[in-house]
């Protein structure tokens, strides 16, 4: 655009021609993008917007839609399982996200060191993310099996009687948080990319100044990694608040034991597709959306205080 305008003052005819080509090209661009745009409007925008409408209705797909005003929302606040879902989900996010950030960075730092077999280790840590979540759930169910599980067997050899893990409401969420770290490979990759983006010059300068390895990490690497940490944190929080597949596969949607694994999205799913309370479920989805949006915006606000971009003061 900029170059086109400069030329415009000098050779108007040429510009006219160029604009013709551009608009003709643009036309093809739109045509090629059209299927995608139609899809987006039809399968995202339309359901999204209609779910606002349905959240004020009683709707079960098959029976006539009935306007109920704010009743769905009122009912939600009186639904004990709604609050159980919120509590469980926040508990999960509160622990799973920080743990995955700390663990992810530590692993990335280790995998960024010039060690032997480096690419082998990188692959090893990434492999679990390729396993489908449902398969992960089953593998961990075996590992954490209180009687025959490998983990309790190992604990027993060092004289610790292992807990019932997924069978006990006190241990079930910690077990899930542990399992979720299994899929940490994706964020490790992003951290690694961030680490490799940090210029060697800083490192060299710090070494000349005699900084130790730990201080270098704390004062140089981590601050320069903050944009990536920020990104992973936001993605992590959004994913954690929507946690669904793993607990659903583990408990077959029941949230056992004692509703301790009943997460918000599971309750939403059960209401929508098991009890066909689509209006109610839409209301739940919008509440979740507002919560996620609020948390994300708050994080964005705070980011100016702790996120440093290359080139910033």
């Amino acid at each position: 655009m900029f170059s086109a305008r400069t030329i415009a003052g000098i050779r108007p005819r040429m510009v006219w021609k160029r604009r013709g080509i551009e608009s003709r090209r643009a036309k093809y661009g739109y045509i090629f993008a059209l299927p995608w745009m139609t899809g987006l409007l039809l399968f995202y925008a339309y359901p999204l917007l209609s779910s606002i409408y349905y959240s004020f209705n009683k709707y079960n797909v098959i029976s006539p839609v009935e306007w109920v005003g704010l009743n769905n929302y009122k009912e939600l606040f009186n639904d004990p399982l709604f609050w159980t879902g919120i509590k469980n989900t926040l508990y999960y996010a509160l622990f799973a996200v920080p743990i995955s950030v700390v663990l992810g960075i530590s692993l990335a730092l280790l995998l960024n060191m010039p060690i032997r077999w480096r690419s082998f280790f990188r692959t090893v840590f990434f492999i679990p993310t390729l396993v489908p979540v449902v398969a992960t759930a089953i593998i961990w169910q075996w590992l954490l099996n209180p009687q025959f599980g490998l983990i309790n067997h190992l604990l027993e050899t060092i004289g610790i009687g292992g807990p019932p893990w997924l069978g006990d409401p006190k241990w079930s969420k910690p077990s899930l948080i542990l399992m979720a770290q299994w899929g940490i490979g994706n964020s490790v990759i992003i951290y690694l990319a961030g680490l490799q983006d940090i210029s060697k010059d800083y490192d060299d300068a710090a070494r000349v100044d005699g900084a130790s390895g730990l201080r270098k990490v704390w004062h140089i690497t981590l601050p320069l990694l903050t944009p990536v940490i920020f990104f992973n944190m936001i993605m992590g929080i959004i994913n954690a608040l929507q946690v669904f597949t793993l607990p659903y596969a583990l408990t077959y949607g029941t949230g056992n034991p004692a509703n301790s694994l009943l997460f918000y999205s599971m309750h939403l799913y059960n209401n929508a597709f098991l009890y066909m309370k689509m209006g109610y479920a839409s209301a739940m989805a919008w509440i979740l959306f507002i919560v996620i949006m609020t948390i994300t915006l708050l994080l964005f606000r705070s980011s100016s205080r702790w996120v440093y971009y290359h080139g910033d003061q």
Binding site: I234, M235, A249, Y269, A285, F289
Partner: peptide, 25 residues
Amino acid sequence: LVVLLGITMLGGCSSQGNENGANQS
């Protein structure tokens, strides 16, 4: 990305469910 993810979350309930379709209750 955040907004997009939000959108997929709202619109994607059913597809999430399908992922689990294979694993029957």
